[in-house]
Design a protein around this nucleic acid. Structure first.
Lengths: 349, 349
DNA sequence: CTGAAAGCGCTAACAA
DNA sequence: TTGTTAGCGCTTTCAG
C-alpha cells in the first residue's frame, strides 16, 4: 500500500516550497505560468489531492453546506422537500460543496442543534420550509450565511427563494376563465399555510381582475389540513349547492384528486361536468384518469438556486439580502378539456 | 463576537492537559471519574464542541460516509433509490455520521471519481444499485469499507444488503393460488435486471412447488425495459391467446399498471376478470383504481442497514463479509379481490 | 491516571 | 514570484 502523497511530496519533487504549491492548488494569482505548469504536472504524476480535513482546518472552511428541514416536512408523502434537497445536492456538486442534511423539530430545542453547526462543519445553511423562530435566531447567531427556501421571515432580513404562488394561481384561473368558465370554486383546506394563502390571494385577485364573481359557497377554506379528504369534503360542500360550479381550482393536487374521487364515486364526468386544476404537479396527477391539469413547480430549481446564493455569500462574504421568486408553469391535461379521446377513456374506465 | 472555545480553553480552565480532555471527549477509558466529571462540567460551561476538521485531520477520520449511485438510477421517476438514500441519512445521524451523496456514470471514468474519495473525505462507501465493475475495482483499491445495496458482485466478496425478491415473488404467487387461480401469467419485461430475474425465479419456483402449470404463452420476458409499456405489451400478448390467464404477477408495479391500463381501455374488469399483483409498492399503486395488490419493499431499511454495516466495518476495521436479505411483505388491495365496493367503483369510473 | 510533545496536511501572513 | 514560518484544533504515542 503506497503512501498517500501530500503537498510536501509535491513541493519536494518540484523543488519548490509548500506555499507555491498551495497557490497552484488553489488557483491563486501571482504564480509564474511556467511554475504552475510544472507543479500541475507533478501533481498529476503523483496523483495528489489535498485532504479535505487538512484544508478545512487551515482555512476554517469545511466545504459543506448544511440543509435543515423540519421533520414533519420531511416525513410527508409528498416529495416536495425531497426534491428541493436533491436540487441542492446536484447544484452543490458543481460548486465543489457537499450537502449535509438534518431534520429538526419545528420549535427550537437546544438538544437538537444540528451537529454540523456545533462542529463548525458547514460554511452556510439552507433552511427549507417553515421553521420555528428559535431556529432562525440560533442559526443567525452563528454568523453563517443563511438562505431560506419556500419560507419567509418578516421580522428578519434573510435571503429567500420562493415559489411564485400568486402567478401560478393566476395562470390556473386564467386558464379556466379562458375556457369559458364563470362559476369557479376554490379549495384551500387550511389556508393558514403560507403557500396556500398566496394561492388563495392569487385566485381572488385574478377572479376580480377578470370580472368573474366570487361565490363563498364555492370556497372551501376551513379545513385543518390540505389533504385528500379536504378535496372530498369540498366536493360534498359544492355539490350540495343548488347552483354548482363548473370549474374548480384546488390549492394543491392532493385536494384536487380528493375532489375527483368524490366525483368518480358518483359517476360524475370530470372535465365535462366540472373542470379541475390543481397545483404542485405531483406524480399522482399523471396516474389519475383524467390526468390532472396543474401548476408545475420546479422544486429542484428552488434547491439549486439556494445553493448558488449560499455559495455566493460564502465566497463574497457579502450580506446582500436577495429574494428570488421562482416562476411556475401551467400544465394543461385532460381534467380541463374534454376531448373526444378523454371522454372515451372515461367511458371505458 | 465571542471567541470560539477550543480544547485548549477547556484544559486551561480545568487545570488539566489537552490529552486528558481529549480522552474525556472521546469517551476513552483510563480517566478518573472525578476528572471526567470536572472536564464535562467545564465543557458544558464553555459550550465547547470539537471541530470536525481538526479531529478529522488528527484522527484521519472524516465522520462521513459516501453514497454512490449511478445517474440513471437516480434520475428514474421511481423514488426507489432516493428512499434508500434517505434511509442512510437518518441512520447515519444516529451514528454521528453524515452522508455525502454523488452520482457517477455506469461505467468507470477517471474524471468522475467522487471528490469525497480523492479528498479522503469519507470513512466508508455505500454503493447502491448496479454499477460498472470498474467502479467496484477502484473503490476497493482505496481500501475503504464498502457495502453494496440492491446489487451483488459475484467475483468479489463484498458485503451486500439485498431485497428478498424470491420470497416476495412467492408471497405474491401464493396469494394468487390461494385465491383459486390456476392460470397465472408473469410480466418480467427485461429479466436481465438482477432483481427482476430473482422475482422471475421465485415465480417459477412457487408455481412448480404448488403444482400449478407454467404456460410460456403467459410470460412476457423479452422487453428491453421494465416500464409501463411492457405491461401494456404483455396484456396485448396474453389477451391474444385463445386461453387467457386469470391472474398476473408483474415483476414491478409500473408494469402491473401498464397492464391495468390496457384492460381499462378495453373496459375489462380488473380483479373480476383478471387479478393483478405487482412488486415494489409505489405510490401510483394507491392512486390507481382498483388499488394495486403488491409486494412492499422497505427501501429505507435497505439504506439504514447499509449504514449500520459500514459503521461496524469502520469501527472494527473488520473485513467480515456480510450479506443481509431484507424481507418484504405482501400488501393485498383491490386488484386481487373483487368486493362489491370495488366493482361499483369500476363501473362508476 | 495524567502530562508533554509531536505531528496530521494544509493555508496564509510575512519575508525575501 | 517564491520561500519561511507559524499556526489551525485535535489525537496519540510515550513518559511519568
Amino acid at each position: 500500500m503506497k503512501k498517500i502523497p501530500t503537498i510536501r511530496d509535491v513541493a519536494k519533487k518540484a523543488h519548490l516550497s509548500l506555499s507555491t504549491v498551495s497557490l497552484v492548488i488553489n488557483n491563486k494569482a501571482n504564480v509564474n505560468e511556467e511554475t504552475r505548469q510544472k507543479v500541475q504536472t507533478i501533481i498529476d504524476e503523483l496523483g495528489y489531492h489535498p485532504r479535505r480535513s487538512a484544508r478545512g482546518l487551515a482555512s476554517q472552511l469545511s466545504g459543506n453546506i448544511g440543509f435543515i428541514l423540519t421533520d414533519d416536512h420531511f416525513s410527508q408523502a409528498e416529495p416536495f422537500y425531497t426534491k428541493i434537497f436533491l436540487g441542492t445536492e446536484f447544484e452543490a456538486r458543481t460548486h465543489n460543496y457537499y450537502i449535509l442534511l438534518t431534520t429538526v423539530s419545528r420549535t427550537f430545542k437546544a438538544s437538537e442543534i444540528p451537529r454540523f453547526l456545533l462542529e463548525h462543519n458547514v460554511d452556510g445553511v439552507i433552511v427549507a420550509g417553515e421553521v420555528g423562530g428559535g431556529w432562525i435566531d440560533y442559526i443567525m447567531g452563528r454568523h453563517l450565511p443563511v438562505v431560506l427556501v419556500d419560507y419567509e421571515v418578516n421580522r428578519r432580513s434573510l435571503s429567500t427563494v420562493l415559489i411564485d404562488n400568486r402567478m401560478g394561481a393566476q395562470a390556473a384561473v386564467d386558464h379556466l376563465i379562458d375556457n369559458g368558465h364563470k362559476k369557479i370554486g376554490f379549495i384551500g383546506g387550511n389556508i393558514t399555510h403560507p403557500s396556500i394563502k398566496d394561492r388563495y390571494v392569487g385566485f381572488r385577485e385574478t377572479m376580480t381582475n377578470r370580472g368573474v364573481p366570487l361565490n363563498d359557497a364555492w370556497m372551501y377554506l376551513d379545513g385543518e389540513t390540505t389533504a385528500l379528504i379536504d378535496g372530498y369534503r369540498a366536493a360534498e360542500k359544492f355539490f350540495a349547492c343548488e347552483d354548482v360550479p363548473t370549474a374548480i381550482f384546488a390549492a394543491n393536487d392532493v385536494m384536487a384528486i380528493g375532489f375527483m374521487q368524490y366525483m368518480k364515486e358518483r359517476g360524475m364526468k370530470i372535465s365535462e361536468e366540472t373542470s379541475i386544476v390543481g397545483f404542485d404537479n405531483i406524480e399522482a396527477g399523471l396516474q389519475v384518469i383524467p390526468r390532472l391539469t396543474t401548476v408545475n413547480v420546479h422544486c429542484e430549481e428552488l434547491g439549486s438556486i439556494a445553493v448558488r446564493r449560499i455559495v455566493e455569500m460564502i465566497a463574497q462574504k457579502s450580506d446582500v439580502v436577495t429574494k428570488t421568486v421562482v416562476p411556475v408553469e401551467l400544465v394543461v391535461r385532460e381534467s380541463t378539456k374534454a376531448s373526444a379521446k378523454d371522454v372515451s377513456v372515461l367511458i371505458d374506465a
